[in-house]
Every structure is written in C-alpha cells, then in structure tokens.
C-alpha cells in the first residue's frame, strides 16, 4: 500500500510537468460527459419520465456510475493501458522485481485528468441529491459510498480481464469497451428500463446493477422486499473483482510459460 502511494506521487510529479495539457484534458473530461448529461436533461424535458423514474433519480444513477468510472480510470489506469506495457515489453521489467505484478501494474499508470469527469459527476450528484426528498440516515450514506466503491471494483475487474487478454492477443481489445464504456453508458439509467436479459446479464454476470439500480431502490424508498439485501448488494458486487484477480494470475502464468 505504501508502495502504491509512492507510485501515485511519482506519477503526479510527472503529470505536473505538463500543466497545460493536464488542464486542457481535464476540461475535456468535464465536458464530454457534460454533453451527455445535457442530452439526458433534454430527453426528460420532452418525455417527463422513463418507466416511472424521474429526472433527478436518473441523474443520481448517472452521477454514481460516472463517479465510479472516473475513479477507476484514474487509479486503475495501469490495467486499462496494459496492452502498451506488453507491446513495449515493459512487463518483463515488472517480473524482475520482488513485488506482486498487481501492485506494479496498478502503479504503472494513473490518469489524473479524470478529475474533470469526477467533478462533473459530483456536481450532478449534489444537484440530484438536493432535489430528491430522501430521508437520510447513516446507513443510507454508507450505502451510497459503497455503491461508488462497488463500481470502482467492477470497472477495475473488467480492466483486469481485458489486460489478461493481452497475454494472448492485443488485437480486438476494443471488445472490453462494451463492458467499460458500454457498462457506464447503460448504467446511467436504472437497469429495469432495459430488456430482461440485459438487466439479468448486468446483474448476475457483470454486476453493474449493484452499483446503482438495486441499492438506489433502498435509498429512494422504492424498494419492494428486503431492504437489507438491497443495501448490501454493492458489497456483493464488489466481489466481482475476486475471480478477475484469479484470471489475471492465470494470465501471468501463461505469459511466463510462452513469453509471447
């Protein structure tokens, strides 16, 4: 953990060498999701609601998933950009060091410019929360925090799966964006607006549902059935990263026996 922060600080120092580009990219990261949010706003202006969900409820969904996405893109960028590490042969370097590959890959890259996207989602979050009649309690606040954590874990898990794929081929990696960018795009709206099979896939296979849709029902008081379960879903969703971790280790073993 201490090592991770060391990596963080050295990357931050590097980034600060290029201030102008940092600011420009951060601003870009602010406006790209912003235009999507504006689109969402206009759609609600025209249609009023979507399958019984109001604008601010969806905005909350939007904020949570974008927050999780920007945090994972910032802190787990090493796995997201892993293909370049393999192509350049830099991964060998990590293997001759006495630390786990996980920490080293995680520390190989950070994308601080995602602060723009983060800021945008925080603004949406605050705006949505201040317009929703929620009776707050400590548990609800914890649930909200857990939702974001669970999102970060799930995105990181997907990055790891994609990174593992690089050990076999660096082609076709774009498929992973179905689950990262696609997952983000999809989870902007509550899952129940989609076809059943989509909702099921993104609840039980890649558990984006646990990031916002399921626990939001508890927070917004929409829940039918057991509140405790809805509340705990983010924790279950976070477990997604465990199998990803195993797959990653399998990939590293494969790499060391073939050295592609």
């Amino acid at each position: 953990m201490k090592l991770y922060f060391k990596y963080l600080s050295i990357h931050f120092k590097s980034q600060m060498q290029y201030r102008t580009s940092f600011w420009l990219l951060s601003i870009g990261q602010f406006f790209i999701p912003f235009s999507i949010f504006v689109g969402l706003y206009f759609l609600f202006e025209r249609f009023g609601q979507i399958k019984g969900w109001q604008f601010f409820e969806v905005a909350l969904c939007f904020a949570v998933i974008h927050m999780a996405f920007s945090l994972s893109e910032c802190f787990a960028r090493g796995f997201d950009m892993f293909s370049s590490l393999v192509v350049k042969g830099e991964f060998d370097r990590l293997l001759v060091r006495p630390r786990s590959t996980f920490v080293q890959v995680l520390g190989s890259k950070f994308e601080f410019t995602r602060v723009g996207r983060l800021l945008q989602s925080v603004i949406v979050l605050v705006w949505a929360l201040s317009n929703l009649p929620i009776e707050w309690s400590t548990i609800k606040a914890i649930t909200l925090a857990l939702m974001i954590v669970s999102g970060v874990f799930i995105f990181t898990g997907i990055y790891m799966l994609a990174a593992t794929m690089c050990f076999w081929t660096v082609q076709g990696l774009e498929v992973a964006s179905i689950f990262t960018d696609g997952g983000r795009e999809m989870a902007q709206y509550p899952l129940n607006i989609y076809q059943k099979w989509v909702a099921r896939f993104f609840t039980y296979v890649i558990p984006f549902g646990t990031v916002n849709y399921l626990p939001l029902q508890y927070i917004l008081g929409k829940g039918d059935g057991n509140e405790l379960i809805h509340m705990l879903t983010p924790v279950l969703g976070s477990l997604f990263i465990l199998p990803c971790f195993l797959v990653w280790q399998f990939g590293v073993r494969h790499y060391r026996s073939t050295g592609s």
Binding site: L173, G182, I193
Partner: peptide
Amino acid sequence: AALAGVATQFFWGFIIIMVFEAFYEH
C-alpha cells in the same frame, strides 16, 4: 480490432434503442 469495433457498436446501438424504447413507452 475491426470485428471488436463492430461488436461494440452493435451493443451500443442496442442500449440506445432500449433507452428510447423506455422513454417512448409512456
């Protein structure tokens, strides 16, 4: 890469259609 891109765009298209379907419903 192209094949992967096709799959991605296909998925994307589906998501967008379903969103609009839900909006149009009511």
